[in-house]
Design a protein around this nucleic acid. Sequence first.
RNA 1: GACCCUAUCGUCUAGAGGCCUAGGACACAUCCCUUUCACGGAUGCGACACGGGUUCGAAUCCCGUUAGGGUCGCCA
Length: 444
Amino acid sequence: MSEVRVRFAPSPTGLLHIGGARTALFNWLFARHFGGRMILRIEDTDTARNTPEAVAIIFKGLRWLGLDWDEGAQEGGGNLGDYGPYYQSQRSELYQKYAARLLAADQAYREADGAIRFRMPRTPGVVRDLICGEITFDRTTEPDPTIVRKDGTPVFHFVNVVDDMEMRVTHVIRGEDHLSNTHKHIAMFEALGALPPRYAHIPLILNPGGSKMSKRDVGASIGEYIEQGYLPAAVRNYLCLLGWSPKDNREVIGISEVIEKFDLPQINRGNARFDLNKLYWLNGEYWKALTADEYHAYAKNYLQQRGVSVGGIDAQYLAGVFDIVREKIKLGRDLPDWVEPFFNEEFAYDEKSLMVTLREPEARARIEKLSAAFGTVGEWTAARLEETLKALAAADGVKAGAYVHPCRAGVAGRAVGPSLYHMLEVMGQERVLARLRRTLTMNF
RNA sequence: GACCCUAUCGUCUAGAGGCCUAGGACACAUCCCUUUCACGGAUGCGACACGGGUUCGAAUCCCGUUAGGGUCGCCA
């Protein structure tokens, strides 16, 4: 096989769609597996929604997923590679040239209003798809597709073919929604005297309701995952599993291994429904697998992006807080809330800690005893604090929980949170005692 | 409506004629662990769409039906 050249050709719609992201991923995987080249072409012929911001969202999403490209459109509007420009909006002359050529050869004709139509061959259209197999389309009643509108702008099917030809694309890997149109593309290649690329149509991603995932569906945009603090490797791993499988019962699989094993024939033919639950679980697996440094850097960065300033906080304290919170959550989204009571002395008391715990008749007395005992505890470690608290409970003949709950509520204002003793250890004696004292002065 | 694709637990999938009383994962349920919430561990629930063939034998091959999805644009 000569050098593999694949392309991902998104149109700027304002978001990077999850289906598009998977198409990009499969193209990328194929290119990397065969040592080929990945090309990014921006299909921005629809001028209405073509804005620099919309294009930037595509770059951002691909970069975030770790999908790089060897050739094509670049951030800032640049082009990299010998077959550019890679923005269709900058290739109008080329399309005009090829339309004229088709017209001259009578393979296309002009309508009264100026639009140009391609003369469809009336022979059966045969598509040999690398995933779907050989399919034959009857074209006896197929209308001639428009390739240039009456206003002179070229139509998608035509520019797609011209660009794939000009850019020497060898394999077109795209969504199955294009399968029924592929014979038209092949006919255009042939009319232009070019060899068509090999086609591979991958199944669609359906929403939980079972229809094609649209931009309005929850989870449809890669931007959502960035914002919610999903880990890119987890999202990428999940996308790999939609229509492809390592076939050995593993779910968590490193990208280099996917590259090694990936090939087109093993891709499933049936559409797959999107399951946010499984992605969430998978993200948890990657969350746990992060090294301490990676996790700390991620947490700090995410919080800052969410407008939570952690700049002035002692690095060691910050790391301690991050560490005890980590095992309780699965993604960045939960970080701000879990971390809040550690950084903010004005933390809010949630309803449950207030109503159920702090208003209990014995709560006040227990917090007083806790204050006294913690004030003279000596070594401020989780183990020592646990011992101290349990001794208090034992002396009263009650379960540890009777002390744990008011303590947690008083110190963090929450009914749920990280392991209490570790939380106290991280917070430090001074802060804990101050908060307990303050709780006593409050009127619930 | 015409054409095309697809059809294994609720979901993602393993399965390419006997290894299948169909395996794994998510979700769900129960139990264990436990100060909460998670995590983890154990167990359970749960599928070959239906009908015909072919074959000694079919989840696997063929045909039909049904269902789902897609395409039929001077959208991409």
